[in-house]
Write a protein that binds this DNA or RNA. Structure first.
Lengths: 344, 344
DNA sequence: CTGAAAGCGCTTACAG
DNA sequence: CTGAAAGCGCTTACAG
């Protein structure tokens, strides 16, 4: 394999010049540039990232802090879409991804690599309460990082917070609930995420409560069950809600998979959707279109979140000015077949 | 951040000795070893992979050649399970993963990095006919590589082939078909994978044909439709099969997602499963348990395939002796609720 | 069992 | 606009 010396020799210039051409430094004559580029293509030269890293203090990899078991991660369509968005822009910048998943065997050890400047140039954290500790360490070490989700660390003095990208969860839940309310539903069951797990969930409760309050309703404790985002947990929560009496006429699930699980519970009990029961989800992940009937839901653009987070991280790494600390993506109510007027 | 000189100074030894301790070279006294390890933990030292790579000719990354659009990849539960298996053992060996997905914009460019010894120590290819060219180049360059799937390149002279890991697809299809036959079915529709796409599909056709032949049946062309592994394509193929007359009493789908799609087509037409129609899948991916009714299928252990492929690659990288060229994983018939006796 | 020194392939001040 | 030279942080013969 050719190295920079081979290129320099062939182009009859110094290695410093080759390096400059390759990194697009200004002040290189077009003639020289051309000679170098010719030599590069002739030799099929491509620089050693190892040497580049050692020298330039760049690793060309961004770390991903994923506080989920791989077993869960690889099955969650929402998370996977986020990863796809990240992968896309990392690829665009010619960076590699270092996956660091939380493992029971060694929960903090895996993250050590993310704190080590010898490994990564920056890190993206999937927000979860478990990530707060890592985030603080990252802040201390000055490592560029962004949270997919809400800010993990709030700094009072400067008012600075973790750079973060998230959807407008509050508004999403508000619209979902209002949609159900407008259809005449008054007894609305909720399948929430794990308690005390991520901030987005709190925001959604708020949105839900606010919508209720506007029509003079109060949230009832018996109408709330927590799932863990899996289909299975949606089935369980759905069963419990549908056993209540009076039975709720609508269910708002905090993600699509659990909503699909609730649809299954409804079917078990011989209930028709949306005639007997309306169900609305959150995320707008592929399964929402594939379900039967297709699921009305709140789209939050998982892929866009991943992309935005990665772009923000690269801005941070490159010390761009005017990087927004917080990016809030709009949500959208997607009407499909799983919601309808309240039965009389 | 501490470097090797800091450690050497603190331990009062040379950097060569530190290096030796850290790489577990024999012939270091226990006393010295101890001193070095103490210094390492005192300083929180962890070696720079960049320098290590440059020097030791090791990159600590394995490349993944994924001849699928990211858009597809991140939605295919089977592929994701394979990746999970790979990730698991890569993590165990402390290696990172370089994802290289096929992109329309630059289909071969992405793979160039995989051919470059400056980037990766070895590569795992997800088998697909599109991968054959890459595989040959890898062979030429002497890069360690293994195929998840069938051997991509056959060498006649030495009888050598690409190191590969796959399930016994032939046997899987044989058992699936036999199961249906034993239930009395004689008119069995097949939803195959994309034509001329991967060798596993050919193997499965063979298994299917052989099973039929044993009871004196011949495959009929009108009973075969090709899908592309997505749920949607399963729905389409299902509709076509169920419009045939006489209508098939059973369907064998070459993956679970398409099988679930066919279940949906059956429901559209008011058919009950398994009373009116039996359906059997292939893979035993999570959706097979979650479907309604749960899907009878052929388990091929996606995660195990990924793990086995990664282990094989590390053996190759480490020049271990006696590395098996081909690893064939057994399959298993998983009986669930979607198959039953032929209706009379 | 231990260490001095060269070298891996780049980039970056610095000088011109 | 171009180049000589030092240095990034390791590992690997080689010598002892």
């Amino acid at each position: 394999m050719a190295n920079i010396y081979d290129v320099a020799r062939l182009a009859k210039v110094s290695t410093a010049t080759v390096s400059k051409v390759l990194s697009n430094t200004p002040y290189v004559s077009d003639k020289t540039k051309q000679k170098v580029m010719d030599a590069v293509t002739d030799l099929g030269y491509s620089p050693s990232i190892a040497a580049r890293s050692l020298t330039g203090n760049r690793r060309f990899v961004i770390g991903l802090a994923i506080p989920y078991e791989p077993n869960y991660l690889f099955r969650d369509p929402f998370l996977l879409e986020v990863l796809q968005g990240i992968e896309e822009v990392a690829n665009e910048f010619d960076f590699n991804l270092l996956f660091s998943t939380a493992r029971k065997t060694n929960p903090q050890g895996a993250y050590n690599r993310l704190l080590n400047k010898g490994y990564v140039d920056g890190v993206i954290i999937l927000e979860t309460v478990m990530g707060a500790e890592l985030d603080e360490k990252l802040e201390e070490s000055g490592m560029p990082r962004v949270s997919v989700g809400y800010a993990l660390t709030k700094k009072d003095s400067q008012g600075k917070i973790t750079p973060a990208v998230h959807a407008n969860d509050y508004d999403g839940a508000l619209q979902a609930t209002r949609h159900l309310l407008e259809l005449g539903h008054r007894r609305i069951g909720v399948i929430g995420g794990p308690a005390n797990f991520m901030i987005a969930m709190e925001e959604r409760y708020q949105g839900y409560r606010t919508a209720l309050a506007k029509v003079g309703l109060k949230p009832e404790n018996e109408l709330l069950f927590h799932g863990d985002f899996t289909l299975e947990s949606g089935i369980l929560a759905g069963r419990k809600l549908l056993q209540l009496s009076p039975r709720p006429t609508a269910i708002f699930s905090f993600n699509d998979r659990m909503a699909v699980g609730a649809m299954r519970s409804a079917r078990e009990m011989g209930l028709k959707i949306p005639q007997d029961l309306s169900i609305i989800g959150f995320d707008d992940v592929e399964v929402a279109q594939a379900s039967d009937p297709p699921l009305t839901t709140i789209r939050q653009g998982a892929m866009e979140m991943g992309q935005a987070a990665a772009r923000k991280l690269f801005s941070l790494i490159n010390n761009d000015k005017d990087v927004l600390t917080e990016t809030i993506l709009p949500i959208e109510l997607i009407l499909r077949g799983s919601t309808g007027p309240v039965p009389n």
